[in-house]
Simulated scan of single mutants.
Amino acid sequence: MHTIDQIPTVQPAKRRTDRSRLLVVGATTIAAASWWAILVPVAGLTLDARQGGVLQHVGAPAIVISTALLAFAGWALLAILERNTRGARKAWTIVAVVACLMSLGSPLTGGIGIGAKLGLASFHLLVGAIVLLGLRRTALSAKDRCYEDN
């Protein structure tokens, strides 16, 4: 006979959120770099934009760095919401969708020519979709967060 103190308890398997989220950052960055390689060298599109009155050529390094920073920022926001709110997944999803849609203003107003406008907007949508769907999938439920803290 076992006493209550001796009965082993089974906890659900701990989700590997850090590894999954790092994969989302990597996949997003690779996808953006690949899309740049298709649009610019293969299709011959020129990605020029005017930012604050300055003409800028958007090259692969800018795409890769900004994509990685954005994905890490999304990860950080999700982690903060998980620690401080009950409905972290829903709140994060709403913020991410609004941020992605609002970000379209920059390429659509700053892009030089229709090709640059559409090309740059396609980066925003591609990166937004991968980050949104990828990180949302890794969001911990309130139950999972309780086990993570233990």
Rank of each mutant, 00 (worst) to 15 (best):
G113Q: 06
G119F: 00
L39I: 06
L22A: 10
L69R: 01
L47I: 02
S66R: 05
M1Q: 14
V95T: 12
A79W: 10
T28L: 07
V42A: 13
S122R: 04
D144N: 11
S34L: 14
L78T: 02
I30R: 01
A116S: 15
C146N: 11
L120N: 02
I80Q: 14
N84T: 14
L104P: 04
T3H: 15
L118V: 08
Q56G: 00
L133E: 05
G111L: 02
A79F: 07
S141Q: 14
A13I: 10
D48Y: 04
L23F: 10
T138C: 07
W75V: 14
L23Q: 10
V24C: 06
G134Y: 03
L133S: 10
W36Y: 15
S103R: 03
K143F: 11
G87P: 08
R15T: 11
G110T: 03
A91L: 11
A31E: 09
Y147I: 11
A79S: 14
A43R: 06
L108S: 10
R89Q: 13
A62N: 05
A68M: 03
L140T: 00
G26K: 10
T28E: 05
I63M: 05
V131Y: 03
S20C: 09
D144V: 02
T85R: 15
G52C: 04
I4W: 12
L77P: 01
N84R: 15
T17E: 05
S141N: 10
T138G: 02
A31I: 12
L104N: 00
Q6V: 06
G134S: 06
S122V: 09
W36C: 09
V131A: 07
G128M: 13
L133M: 08
A96K: 12
P8N: 15
A60W: 09
V127M: 05
W75R: 14
S103V: 00
Y147P: 00
I80R: 15
A27R: 04
I4V: 11
T3C: 03
H57D: 11
L78I: 01
D144G: 03
R15M: 09
G87T: 12
R145C: 03
R16H: 12
T29K: 06
L118P: 02
A76V: 14
I94E: 01
S34R: 00
S34C: 12
Q11D: 13
Q6R: 15
A129I: 03
D5Y: 10
I130D: 05
V10G: 05
L101Y: 07
A76M: 14
L126N: 05
Q51C: 02
A121N: 04
T46I: 14
G59T: 07
S106T: 00
P12E: 09
G128S: 13
A33C: 07
L77Y: 02
V54S: 01
R89P: 01
V64C: 12
V127K: 09
L45K: 12
G110L: 01
A121L: 05
A129H: 03
